[in-house]
Simulated assay, not measured.
Amino acid sequence: MRPHLALIEDEPDFALMCRSYLERAGFTVTWAMDARAGNAVLHESRVDLAILDLGLPDGSGLELLRALRSTSRLPVIVVSGRSAEADRVAGLEIGADDYLVKPFSQRELVARIHAVLRRSQPPDVPTVIQAGSLLVDTAARRASVGGAVLTLRPKEFALLELLAAAPGRVFSAEQLLERIWGSSWQQSATVIEHVYRLRGKLAALPAPAPRITTVRGFGYRLDP
Rank of each mutant, 00 (worst) to 15 (best):
R2W: 07
L7V: 06
D13V: 02
S20D: 09
Y21T: 10
G26L: 02
V29Y: 08
M33E: 15
M33V: 15
D34V: 06
D34P: 08
N39C: 07
H43T: 04
E44W: 11
L54S: 07
L56C: 00
P57V: 13
E63Q: 07
R66P: 04
A67Y: 03
S70M: 12
T71Q: 14
S80V: 09
S83H: 13
A86T: 11
R88N: 08
A90D: 08
G91D: 08
D97V: 11
Y99N: 09
V101W: 00
R107M: 12
V110K: 06
A111G: 09
R112K: 02
V116D: 02
I129G: 06
I129Y: 08
S133V: 01
V136E: 07
S144I: 07
G146I: 02
G147W: 11
T151S: 15
T151Y: 15
L152Y: 03
R153K: 15
F157L: 01
A158T: 10
A158Y: 07
L159W: 05
L160T: 08
L160M: 11
A166E: 15
P167R: 01
L177G: 05
L177V: 00
R179W: 04
W181Y: 11
S183C: 03
Q187Y: 05
R197C: 01
L198V: 00
G200Y: 12
L202D: 01
I212Q: 03
I212L: 01
T213H: 10
R216I: 01
G217I: 07
G219M: 05
Y220C: 03
R221T: 09
L222M: 07
